[in-house]
Amino acid sequence: MSPPFRPADGRPVVWRAGFGTRFTLLVDTEEEFDWRAPFRHDGWGVATTAALPDAHARLAGMGARSGYLVDYPVATDPAAIDALRAVMAQGDATIGAQLHPWVNPPFDEALSNHSSFAGNLPKALEGAKLDRLTDALTAIIGTAPTVYRAGRYGLGPNTLKLLAARGYRLDSSMRARYDYGAQGGPDYRAIANHAFRTGPDGGIVELPLTTVFTGRLRRGGAHLYRAAGRIPRGRGVLARLGLLHRVALTPEDMPLADVLEAIRVAVGEGTRVLNFAYHSPSLVPGHTPYVRDAADLVAFWRWWDAVLALLARLDVHAASSDDILAAAD
């Protein structure tokens, strides 16, 4: 197998005067499927999209502006489309694209872990899938989407050129400080949290998903975390001792206390845009490993209550993807 794709960061975005420190929320708006099962073209549902309007209203009421990165099953189901339109009618919402290649035609690849990362596909096939998705979303929102996230964070060597050719202007596929190479995916360990210019002629703004190192040894950051990974249970020991913990800004499998500390660290380090995410099926118990039952859903909302309250106290305000593109120089 070829080595994992390793993107490089580029020229940092220079934010317009007065932009301040902001946060964004980009939701992986996708089908329900069995996370433990092999990839397949069928067997999915989109019933959880019915929860989107109420969830959007609740988050907007706490100051969030959500961007919904929609994949093909959601973009082509009539009931799911109705839910998206109900969200858009409320305001404080944008629609972008998310490519899950295993459920996005044309289906010309053999299903595998490797092919589940769209960036591993042949350029023509990745482009054809992106065209089908872009067309479906354009039919919903009336204009071509400009924001993209690869499902499973699966960028590849052709993706940014394909996006630029189709008018995409913001990508949020890079998950800072994570490595998916063991699964056949890309390696983002060298990617930091700052937004930067990438793609042909720097025409795409890359907004990585924010990942923060916390703990007394956090200044060792990526290097120390990588070294600890070579020792059995090494990372868990460092985290339990409060020495080093890698924290992503998501309610999914990230304890609230750790995330609150990560937010303080990120703001203190000068991160200008804190990029949050969750998967839309987590809005209904039983569809993701993160929200298995009613108690998990209560914890999910308690997490957002506390996180958004802290952001307000720190004077970190919401920014939509449109706001981010307008403020990027």
Rank of each mutant, 00 (worst) to 15 (best):
K161G: 15
G167P: 10
D131M: 11
L99E: 00
A75N: 10
R85E: 13
L130W: 06
F117M: 01
A89F: 09
Y180A: 07
D108C: 11
T138W: 09
N104G: 10
A89T: 11
M88K: 12
F107R: 09
G91N: 04
T143D: 11
L133T: 00
V147D: 03
L99T: 05
A83K: 07
D179R: 08
D108F: 07
A150F: 03
G96F: 02
N104E: 09
H114W: 12
A164P: 09
P157W: 09
H114S: 13
A144I: 10
Y148F: 15
P105L: 11
G156Y: 00
R166E: 15
I81T: 15
G91H: 04
F107P: 00
D82S: 15
L111W: 05
A97H: 00
A83R: 03
K123H: 12
G91A: 08
N113Y: 07
R152D: 05
L121D: 01
P78G: 13
L162C: 11
V70F: 01
T146K: 05
V103T: 05
G142Y: 11
A139F: 09
P106A: 13
R85I: 12
Y72S: 07
F117N: 03
D135F: 06
A75T: 11
T143M: 12
D135P: 02
K123R: 15
L99C: 04
V147S: 09
R169N: 08
N113L: 05
V147A: 12
G154F: 06
N120F: 01
T138H: 10
A136R: 06
A128T: 08
L137E: 04
K123A: 15
Y148C: 08
D71N: 14
R85M: 14
L84Q: 05
E109F: 02
P73S: 11
D179I: 09
A164W: 03
L137W: 04
A128G: 07
V70C: 07
D77R: 02
A139S: 13
R166S: 14
R169M: 07
G181T: 07
N158Q: 14
G181S: 09
H100V: 04
G156N: 09
V87A: 01
V147K: 02
A176W: 02
P101L: 03
R177T: 11
Y168M: 07
R166A: 13
D71V: 00
A165D: 14
M174G: 05
A176R: 04
A83C: 14
D135N: 14
P106N: 14
D179L: 10
D171T: 01
D71W: 02
L163D: 02
R149Q: 08
Y180M: 03
T146V: 13
S115H: 04
P157M: 12
V103A: 00
P105T: 11
D77A: 13
N120C: 06
A83L: 13
G142P: 12
L160F: 12
A144C: 13
I140C: 07
G96M: 03
V70L: 06
R85Q: 15
P73R: 00
H100K: 04
S172A: 14
Q98T: 00
N120T: 08
A110L: 11
L163K: 01
H100W: 02
D131A: 14
